[in-house]
Design a protein around this nucleic acid. Structure first.
Length: 429
RNA sequence: GGAGGGGUGGCCGAGUGGUUGAAGGCGCACGCUUGGAAAGCGUGUAUGCGGGUAACCGUAUCGAGGGUUCGAAUCCCUCUCCCUCCGCCA
């Protein structure tokens, strides 16, 4: 949500900022509605003032047993006049809210301009993609070869974009989630949370999925929404709260199932389990003050990268360009893991984590504030979120990177404690 | 699902139609006191919006929305959340 005052100060600057998001100039429309609204508000307030004065006098007159009918008539007249202005004001305010709530966050200054993911800026590459003496297969071939990845079963139960994992592959998924949670909590000081996976509408509004992206979400018949990411419950935990600056940053992590309709993604990633309607993800959320959110963002990205390093997976980190940065984000780093089985064995980097600093954009929507030490006024918090990591895609990465020519898959050393020290998953005899 | 009770400022908590934006307490800030600290004493301390260079003025806000009334934290309706008991249930 944008601060209307900032737009009033410099509408042209706002338009320039939004233009980077591909949005046509809108400040004039907003400011005109704002002007009308303020005009109405001022008029309404002077009427209210007169009404309040008259009411007090009426009270006094009546107490003294005098006639107050003239004033009562005046108030009745004022009320009639107020009705129209109030109605107008409500409409204008709703229109303003609608416009403001539908506009994306400001982009960070160092966010590169660009139309889409091709123009993201690579920050660093870490690790070395493995060499294969054979043509590496993709995770579908590997998983089905192991007899432990069942897309037909997923389709039977739920249709496309669902999968059933079995045996040690199911175990691998659980092991990965536990490994990540242990790492985030023990190494990086995140507090583990077990949040609801269904939330009210206002929570999705708070983090910015609503109102604009309602078609990306699943809604139950009685009005709940399935979370598309644990970012939603974790961040909204602070809605309406006022924190002490001394308690910052707050770092939370959660492993949850995530649900996405993937509307508009028809035809993309239809094969395999890269893009599912339901997937597990360990999410990190940090709540920081404005002075420290940038450092916290770097730290958070590092926490996600560290998981990959520990798993021995090669990755690259990219700074998303303007066209690829999400609605609520001020600045986003994507971490892309090397998947050697993609593109017929040529290999390819694919997103496995997305770490965003949302600045005060979400905090403003959900009224999450903090008491600044030494200052009188409360200020909006900065909210950050990042995957640490997407479990399903990590499972894919492990399969494709650790596959052996005989169809078996080695278990990364860091994961073996979570797999009863199993070294290898082999096809069922 | 049935019955009942609640939602008041950063927190706790009074307040059932008329200068109540709201007693009191806690917390916090500043000052006095002290060798220093604690205690004690004093003063101050909600937020949004509009107007104003500013001091400040106005207005709204007691879960949300609507209504009754000259006037609503107080009365009525709807919604929402929390709690208790019963029922059902992982």
């Amino acid at each position: 949500m944008h601060d209307i005052r900032r737009i009033r100060e410099d509408g042209a600057r706002f338009d320039t900022a939004m233009k980077r998001r591909g949005i046509e100039p809108i400040s004039a429309t907003i400011l005109e509605a704002d002007r009308l609204w303020r005009q109405g508000t001022t008029e309404l307030q002077s009427l209210q003032q007169r009404r309040n004065e008259a009411s007090k006098q009426i009270g006094l007159l009546k107490r003294d047993g005098q006639d107050a009918s003239a004033l009562i008539d005046e108030v009745a007249d004022i009320k009639t006049r107020m009705q129209d202005i109030e109605e107008q004001g409500r409409l204008l305010e709703a229109r303003l809210d609608e416009m403001l709530a539908g506009l994306p966050n400001y982009l960070g200054e160092n966010v590169p301009d660009g139309a889409g993911e091709d123009e993201n800026q690579e920050i660093r590459r870490v690790g070395t993609p493995p060499n294969f003496v054979f043509t590496p297969r993709d995770h579908v071939a590997i998983g089905e070869g192991l007899g432990l990845m069942d897309f037909a079963g997923g389709a039977k139960l739920s249709g496309a974009r669902f999968v059933v994992l079995k045996g040690m592959l199911s175990r691998l998924e659980r092991g990965l989630a536990n490994f990540m949670l242990d790492y985030q909590t023990k190494e990086f000081g995140y507090t583990e949370i077990s949040p609801p996976a269904m939330v009210h509408e206002h929570a999705l509004y708070g983090t910015g999925q609503l109102p604009k992206f309602h078609d990306q979400q699943f809604q139950t018949t009685d009005g709940f929404w399935l979370i598309p990411t644990a970012e939603v419950p974790l961040t909204n935990l602070f809605a309406g709260e006022i924190l002490d600056q001394a308690d910052l940053p707050v770092r939370l992590t959660a492993y949850t199932q995530c649900f996405r309709s993937e509307a508009g993604a028809a035809g993309r990633d239809t094969k395999g389990m890269i893009r599912m309607h339901q997937f597990g993800k360990v999410e990190m959320v940090s709540i920081a003050d404005p002075e420290h959110s940038e450092a916290e963002h770097q730290r958070m990205t590092g926490c996600a990268e560290d998981i990959l390093t520990r798993l021995g997976l090669a990755f690259r980190t990219v700074l998303l360009c303007s066209g690829d940065t999400g609605f609520s984000a001020h600045k986003t780093y994507d971490i892309e893991v090397w998947l050697p089985g993609q593109d017929g064995g040529a290999g390819r980097y694919r997103e496995i984590s997305s770490c965003s600093n949302c600045g005060e954009f979400q905090a403003r929507r959900m009224k999450a504030r903090f008491r600044r030490e030494g200052a009188k006024k409360n200020a909006f918090l900065h909210t950050l979120n990042g995957s640490g990591l997407a479990v399903g895609r990590t499972l894919i990465a492990v399969l494709e990177n650790y596959q052996q020519e005989d169809g078996s898959v080695l278990i990364p050393r860091a994961l073996r404690p979570y797999m009863d020290d199993l070294e290898r998953i082999s096809p069922a005899a």
